[in-house]
């Protein structure tokens, strides 16, 4: 099972955090910090796997990908295959790239719920659900259509925020 998905930048600031086993907020903070600690010390040309027994408990490991300013981290246990998880990160990143057209860190910062929608289409409660980024894209477009049909709030908020110029 996949235990958690994290995206954080190279300064250790989380951009997306999803735990598939409940963790109270303080614990989340601690886990993010220890994952960052484990990753930040690693050079660029080394393997992507890290034993995570000390962070997430026995028999857990994490796989990560370092792209531009971001670390994409999947935490999983012995019932997942390491290379398959690496592929899954690729699927996730590809989907983000399609969705945001050349994705960069800022896209992730300002699209909190869309990010979660994408992730939830790929991984459901720790199970891999969909591995084709095309299928995920289709679902995401449909969600956008659905939310737009009856969604006055984003329009109001946007116009106001535009005027406020914040």
């Amino acid at each position: 099972m996949i235990r958690a998905v994290m995206v954080m930048n190279t300064q250790g600031k989380p951009r997306l955090v999803r735990f598939y086993e409940f963790q109270p907020p303080e614990k989340q903070k601690e886990l993010i910090r220890s994952v960052y600690g484990a990753l930040s010390s690693r050079a660029d040309n080394v393997s992507s796997f890290v034993q995570a027994d000390k962070i997430f408990g026995q028999d857990t490991r994490l796989v990560y990908k370092h792209l531009a300013t971001l670390y994409f981290v999947f935490v999983f246990d012995s019932s997942e295959n390491e290379l398959a998880m690496l592929d899954l990160i690729q699927v996730f990143v590809e989907t983000l790239d399609r969705c945001f057209k050349n994705v960069c860190e800022l896209d992730l910062v300002f699209n909190f719920s869309k990010l979660h929608s994408i992730l939830d289409e790929i991984i459901f409660a720790g199970h891999v659900l969909e591995t084709s980024s095309e299928q995920v894209m289709k679902a995401i477009e449909e969600i956008a259509r659905l939310e737009k049909t009856a969604n006055p709030i984003s329009i109001v908020a946007k116009s106001v925020s535009g005027r406020l110029g914040r």
Binding site: P14, R15, L16, V17, P24, P25, E26, Q28, K29, I32, F112, S113, I153, A157
Partner: peptide, 17 residues
């Protein structure tokens, strides 16, 4: 709803209860 969205963001990424 907007308030909850903001709170969710803070809770998820800033570890607020």
């Amino acid at each position: 709803c907007l308030a909850i969205q903001k709170l969710t963001y803070l809770s998820s990424l800033h570890s607020l209860d």
